[in-house]
Write a protein that binds this DNA or RNA. Sequence first.
DNA 1: AAGTTGACTTTCG
DNA 2: TCGAAAGCCAACT
Length: 119
Amino acid sequence: MARSNSEPSRLAGHGPSTSDDFVTRVLEVVAAIPAGRVMTYGDVAAAIGSRAARGVGQVMAYYGSEVPWWRVIRASGHAVADHEAEALQHFRAEGTPIAHTRDGGYRVELRRARYVPSV
DNA sequence: AAGTTGACTTTCG
DNA sequence: TCGAAAGCCAACT
């Protein structure tokens, strides 16, 4: 793991160089997603004027603890890797449209739950 | 400065 | 519909 974090000063805000960086913008968009709706990593990246879908994932992996990370899923409709069970609890509580697969898994119905911040 | 990694996306078979 | 490969972007070493 390369991103094992060496300086969490970003959250402390004692570094002005990170006041409006990629990280902050991603958190803003994710926090703006209403309950019962979801956005793909690519959509979040596009919302901030970028295409770094993976970059969004990096931010979520570290700062996700402060935002509704479960509302950010993959373009395939699958929830966040290694946290599907956790996300499912939130989806059921928020009424997010879910499609259960025959192999015991599940996937979000992007067609219905996809949220587009056109405002 | 260059290389590696990652909670991704899209295209091809 | 599913699986593998290539592509892209940002952050860390």
